[in-house]
Amino acid sequence: MRYFVRLAALIAAALLVGGLPAQADQTMEMAKKEGKVVWYSSISLAIAQELCNTFNAKKLGIECVLHRDGSGKLYRRWIQEAKSNIYAADILHTSDIGHFVTLRREGALVPYLPEVAKKYNPAFVEKDGNWLVLRASVYAACYNTKKVTASEAPTSWKDFLDPKWKGKMVNAHPGYSGFVSLGLAALVKEFGWDYLDKLAANQPRIVQSAVDTTTYVVRGEALICSGGGLYNHFGAIKKGEPIKAIIPKEGAPFVASAQAIMKNGPHPNAARVFTDWLFSLEAQQILAKRGLYSGHPDVVYPKGLVPLKEVKLMVVDPEDAMKMDKPIDEAFRRKFGV
């Protein structure tokens, strides 16, 4: 009994004195034993790889293993694998916030709030820590500056329905891209389902990833893109490609790309360590440098990136995103044929 009391006192003291760091040490210890963290991520490959490489360069004894794919494909792959009792992913990161609402309902997420999250803009943090927004951007259109002048370029989302652009634009697929899924959900909310019909009538090239709409336009294979990721356009501009982003006058759909630790992930402690790092200033600064918006208050944005507060945002809340996800995908397949 005396022994027991002493033990209890010890534990209490430990908790009081250095409870949290001790716990963090323990997580780190176990994470090292796990050795790696598997990250299913929809962020463009170049950026995802930079994050992983930076993390790996720290030589923590935890290797970041990246699986990059489109949001829709990642989400469905995770479910498909779970159905076969395969749990390969530790962290899932997609641009379709609706996915996380569904996964939360299904109990597939492991809540976790890193220390640093307290500093974050509350809009970037789900209150129970089910998910955190790793990065945000807007669904923005674009044009090729060699082939389209600034005065010709569309200024409204409705301009993309004008037959003069028929056969000259590119659009990505909502079944693949979370950006497009959310972007189209916002546009459908604003302009009605009719918007998709008229867009389809203009016969855009259909690519899979929102990233590819940017590359189609920089190659000049399409003159304009009727939607894409602002950060991808920004990256192409920085690289010297002939492209400009368009934020139409009605505003731009806000895309907050969340991530969560997944249940039954093979490396749960490494997932926490990696999450801690992804939300640290260092990682968030890498994202900001690439033209993404961060919830971290201390990041410095690069020159040429429009501040988020100056953008008129079209917001689809997570519940709506969840409800719109499938109907948008199905309507798109039917109207665009693929």
């Binding site: 079944g175 090239r205 665009f336 044929g337 693929v338």
Partner: peptide, 22 residues
């Protein structure tokens, strides 16, 4: 073909397998 908004049977099969309802 997909950029031209058209599936063939093989690509359609993959689209089925990877769609929301598997």
């Amino acid at each position: 073909a997909i950029p031209a908004r058209q599936h063939v049977m093989t690509t359609q099969i993959r689209a089925f397998m990877q769609s929301e309802d598997y």
